[in-house]
């Protein structure tokens, strides 16, 4: 009897603790999605009947395939680059346990303060031979005109650069946090067994923070899939039109506000949402992301607790 009361109490307190999040999830997650679903059925000039044909309108639009290709290329470069570099850098940062660690950590966060509109300006000035502090360097490799860098073929690399330098620093600190929580006992044991620093990093530490790297790749994938600010700003400021409708989100924006086609816009947004959800589900269920920690991974559970607050702040 006492046990069931405890059970009820814990269910109640659990619900209470979950309630604030649930309210926000419904208000700003579920309701908009439902609304978007109905908006996606609205008629437009190109599809006066409306309905599910709007999804076809999106896919058949001449800008859809190029935008899809752009975003896919971007993701193929950006996500693995982030995971690899962030894992490597955080392992290195963790390996250096000296008085330099604190200033080093600060240094990783600095580039993250340059985001969105500011990143566009910074990179424009860096990559424009006339203004660049590295102008001589650019000219030395034969780049004398801005258009040699700022052209459609290079855009994906430029956006990867921008996104990488904006995001990597924060993630390095987060992953460093998860590495910090690995118990010294384990590392000590490994050392006694004769593992060198390289083996410890690759075979002990990396597997223990694996699920946080997965968590990170889901978030970077979702963010990358929705790339908008960088191409939108570059097209509306320094190089008019250069990256017009470059990404799927930009196309969605054009549908809504250039063609007045809210139906197609909502349809495309929903397609992006579905891709995001599928990607997240694969990452979660094809790995042990949500599995309860077994006794053998007790310490990684501890690491989870330590890293989560930092991760959820991003």
């Amino acid at each position: 009897m006492a046990r069931s009361r405890i059970k009820r109490m814990s269910a109640l307190s659990g619900s209470l603790m979950f309630a604030p999040y649930l309210i926000l999830l419904v208000a700003f997650g579920v309701v908009p999605v439902v609304m978007a679903f109905f908006t996606a059925l609205k008629p437009s000039m190109v599809n006066p009947a409306g309905g599910f044909l709007n999804y076809l309108v999106v896919i058949q639009d001449f800008r859809f395939l190029p935008a899809l290709t752009n975003v896919a290329t971007f993701l193929v470069i950006y996500v693995p680059l982030m995971v690899l570099v962030v894992a490597a850098m955080s392992l290195l940062l963790d390996a250096i346990r000296s008085r330099w660690t604190v200033p080093l950590r600060a240094a990783y966060i600095v580039p993250a303060s340059i985001s969105g509109a500011v990143a566009i300006l910074v990179w424009y000035f860096m990559l424009e031979p006339t203004y660049s502090p590295y102008g001589d360097l650019l000219r030395a490799v034969g780049i004398t005109e801005g258009s040699q860098i700022w052209n459609t073929g290079n855009l994906v690399w430029i956006f990867v650069l921008m996104a990488f330098f904006t995001g990597a620093g924060n993630w390095i600190i987060v992953q460093y946090g998860s590495l910090q929580s690995i118990s010294d006992d384990i590392l000590e044991a490994a050392r006694i067994d004769g593992a060198n620093a390289f083996q410890i990093g690759l075979q002990i530490k990396l597997p223990l923070i694996r699920r946080y790297l997965i968590y990170m790749s889901i978030l970077t994938f979702a963010a990358g899939l929705q790339i908008f600010v960088e191409p939108y700003l570059i097209s509306s400021t320094v190089y008019p039109g250069l990256a017009d409708n470059w990404s799927l989100n930009q196309l969605s924006y054009s549908f809504a506000f250039q063609s007045g086609n809210l139906g197609a816009s909502a349809a495309l947004s929903l397609m992006l949402l579905v891709i995001c959800i599928i990607a997240a589900l694969i990452a979660i269920f094809r790995t042990d992301f949500f599995e309860e920690a077994r006794p053998t991974t007790k310490r990684s559970k501890k690491a989870a607790r330590a890293a989560m607050p930092a991760g959820s702040a991003i």
Binding site: G29, A36, A222
Partner: peptide, 17 residues
Amino acid sequence: MNKRLALPLALMAVFGM
């Protein structure tokens, strides 16, 4: 759900009204 997803969705909510 991350923030970058939330914005377009919130926008869609505005459309719905």
